[in-house]
Design a protein around this nucleic acid. Structure first.
Ligand SMILES: [Mn+2]
Ligand SMILES: [Mn+2]
Ligand SMILES: [Zn+2]
Ligand SMILES: [Zn+2]
Lengths: 158, 158
DNA sequence: AACTAAATTGCAGTTATTACAATTAAAGAA
DNA sequence: TTCTTTAATTGTAATAACTGCAATTTAGTT
């Protein structure tokens, strides 16, 4: 609710119109910690907007991003995930099943970049992505391995 | 040279054959700090292997990655970049032109993850990506803006 | 109610990556 | 060296996420 109102305000400030599709996406994103993909957002709205276009979803996400209302997570090759929480936090994804979780990181060691980088780039943001294998996936794997080989402990490299 | 020999050894250990295409990719990657894409690797070898297949490039990159010889950088939506330097360092990319640079980060504040994450995931790695606008691009932008509006200082958000 | 610029829609592209079957070739044995 | 086996490479077709664009609709204003 709060998120939606903020976005409405931001969109108005930017001279963008408030359409039902935009409102619906604001509402879908509001408090959403699931890091949805464009496809998931599209599916989520399809019931209420039977002839919603994918193009519209992409357009709206682009506008929201430009207004600072989401971050686009480039954490897996196949597709982008969208996160309405633009505060400082990191993410971890299971490279087997794609399970994606927030990491609210306490160790606030300020990212101080080397001077030559700061001279060459005007930095706008950063993302920290962790990769791993989740419980469920490593247990499944053990089972499958078990048929032919000796099961190992959960730790294995990417 | 050293990189190639290591990769040859690693491939042998894993029972993989040493083919001319594989050798050529090892050599292309050896000491390569340019973070090439699959397409750039393909083009780089095309002179020596006129009927090299893209599939081969992707297959070989996959094998090298599985052998720990490269990291795949998922830093921009469009394509993956490959980095034969698998030691701890970060990257920054210009969101306008795609210029991609290493950041050798000194501040070694050990990434200590929250316990609930460590309980749920067996972590295999992480990547830190910075986004920004490079000198050349922000200067170009000023020029273009200058035609209609007042030029600003270099700092602008994504 | 009428107007107009902007948003949405429906498709048709684009592009990186993957799947797969047929051909070729590396590596080890004879 | 030649033979054999098995994996690697090739060529091509498929996939899937995203983008471009022209036509239609609509939000916001008068
Ligand atoms: Mn998040
Ligand atoms: Mn690098
Ligand atoms: Zn998993
Ligand atoms: Zn640039």
């Amino acid at each position: 609710m709060d998120y939606s109102h903020n976005m409405i305000r931001k969109f108005r400030e930017r001279g963008l119109k408030i359409t039902p599709q935009r409102l619906a996406i604001f509402n879908l994103l509001d408090g959403n910690t699931g890091h949805p993909t464009a496809e998931e957002i599209y599916s989520g709205l399809k019931k209420d907007f039977p002839n919603l276009s994918f193009t519209t979803v992409y357009n709206i996400l682009k506008s929201i991003k430009e207004a600072g209302g989401i971050q686009e997570l480039l954490i897996e090759r196949e597709r982008a995930h969208y996160d309405p929480d633009v505060s400082l936090h990191h993410h971890i994804i299971c490279t087997r099943c794609g399970k994606l979780r927030d990491i609210f990181y306490t160790n606030t060691s300020e990212m101080r970049l080397p001077d030559d980088i700061l001279k060459e780039f005007s930095v706008t943001g950063h993302q920290i992505h962790f990769y791993g294998v989740c419980r469920a996936c490593s247990e499944n794997e053990e089972e499958e391995e078990g048929k032919t080989a000796v099961p190992r402990e959960g730790a294995n490299a990417n």
